[in-house]
Design a protein around this nucleic acid. Sequence first.
DNA 1: GCGCTTTACGCTGCGCGTAAGTATC
DNA 2: GATACTTACGCGCAGCGTAAAGCGC
Lengths: 302, 302
Amino acid sequence: MSAPDFSVRELRAFVALVDLENFTRAAQAIHLSQPAYSALIRRLEETVGVRLFDRNTRRVSLTPEGRLFEPSVRQLLRDADRALADLGDQIELRKGRVHVAALPTISAGLLPAVFKEFRRSFPGIDLVLSDRLSEACIALVKEGRADFALVSNNARPGDLDELDARLLCRHHYHLVCPTHHPLLSEKRLTLRKIAQHPFIQMTRNNSVRQALEAAIHPRIMNTVLEVEHLGTVISMVNAGLGISVVPTFTLHQFQWPTIATRPLITPNLLRHIYVVRHRERSLSVASSAMLELIVRDLGRLQ
Amino acid sequence: MSAPDFSVRELRAFVALVDLENFTRAAQAIHLSQPAYSALIRRLEETVGVRLFDRNTRRVSLTPEGRLFEPSVRQLLRDADRALADLGDQIELRKGRVHVAALPTISAGLLPAVFKEFRRSFPGIDLVLSDRLSEACIALVKEGRADFALVSNNARPGDLDELDARLLCRHHYHLVCPTHHPLLSEKRLTLRKIAQHPFIQMTRNNSVRQALEAAIHPRIMNTVLEVEHLGTVISMVNAGLGISVVPTFTLHQFQWPTIATRPLITPNLLRHIYVVRHRERSLSVASSAMLELIVRDLGRLQ
DNA sequence: GCGCTTTACGCTGCGCGTAAGTATC
DNA sequence: GATACTTACGCGCAGCGTAAAGCGC
């Protein structure tokens, strides 16, 4: 049992002869000398095991077996062309899908501009954004559902076994408080000083909270309130209930006349943003383009 | 714009690597040395224009583009295998169709036994029999609807331009008459003697009638009745209305105690049976087998 | 160091073009 | 004899196997 083999080119040659009914002209169409073309047809007939054409000087026509073979061949050629075209579309960024998983702060702060530009450049590519907390983002990448994730620095090393985390950027955190808050007159704004004031905290699994708690350990923040969403933080600070600390990407949401922001220039409190992806699974062309755009935009911001 | 080319073999190599996730084992499956196999995959990637596999020592896995390509490839392989299998079935006489056009006398006298044997040997092949007069048979072949025709000798040469008629056999005609008819005691039975007796004639376009009229020209038969079907001839002879002349293949229908038959050994009255087919269009394997069987059966009869 | 893939390299033969041969009208 | 396919023949390179070299655990 030997597996018979033939090439797309041979099939193209076959249909050329079916259509043109003439070896000489079909040979030209395939860009081959006539004898070479003749041999090619003969080889194809040998591989399929049956004469496909009746030929004499006057006329070239299909045998009954050739007539049976023809529709299959045309179908094969259509499918082959289609497969290559699909691949080409994907490569040329005319089609495809990019699935990014990112922290809510990054999703809201960085990605809108990036996605807008990406969509303008590659309108045929479907975009999916999963705005979740770090662990969920990483899980999506691990499952292969997201192409890459943009997360912060508190991912557990164990989670990264088969994944690869590359540092994308480092940002300071920022104090957000009512204007005229006493902290604003501090020369060196430290976390320890901040910890003395009533603080609006995020939920336990939030990466900002985890970073803060790690930085001030073994002390603790003066937490007066624990909320889930950043919008709530804004309102609470605005209402004078307390102060908070937020990452750079959220700052644009705190541009109120009643709220002031100051960067926290402390060496042990930096927000590291990582790109997490499969270690040994390459990105699609579209995903690479997206990542490139993200890096470029980030450079523009800093 | 260059048409990219690849072979079925390359696609088989592709799926082997997808399934086995290991170059060495996939190479064995394809019966190639590992370096040669590696080069083959590389060539395929070059022709499609994108890396299809992520490989390092530990793991081999599809890229996003490879993942897109995979289902297309499997479909292509299925279709290619199917096309070859169909062709093989046709060649091995497991499937197919044979369409024979034949004179009613041949259809009823010769073909039942042949078709029975053919069907026993090749039960997967569909059989079509058009039992018509010569002209209609030849028209079917000319249109390409029938594979070949079995007709008698009065086909016009003009009708045969693109067709090829090969003599299959020659038979005598036979007198059919009531037992004890005076003609039966004739030593040399000639058409001229028959013409004197009341004669049951077939319709004008019947090949037997045309042969008779040509043979006795410029005399004419003593026609008492003109009928369409052979069964009617039988009944009329049986009833004593007249005598008739029929071809060999119909004789089995005249085996009545009241009817006698005698061959007409006259040199100018011979029934030539021809196989008519397209001059430059080969027969399908199944049709050839059928024709071969016909020739063989004919040999057995004589 | 071990397992797996890639690179290096020589060789064989497939498949090409040119030219001559053959068949059909 | 003109036209069109087939055969003959030499040549180049694609693609093979063997051997050696990277490379990631």
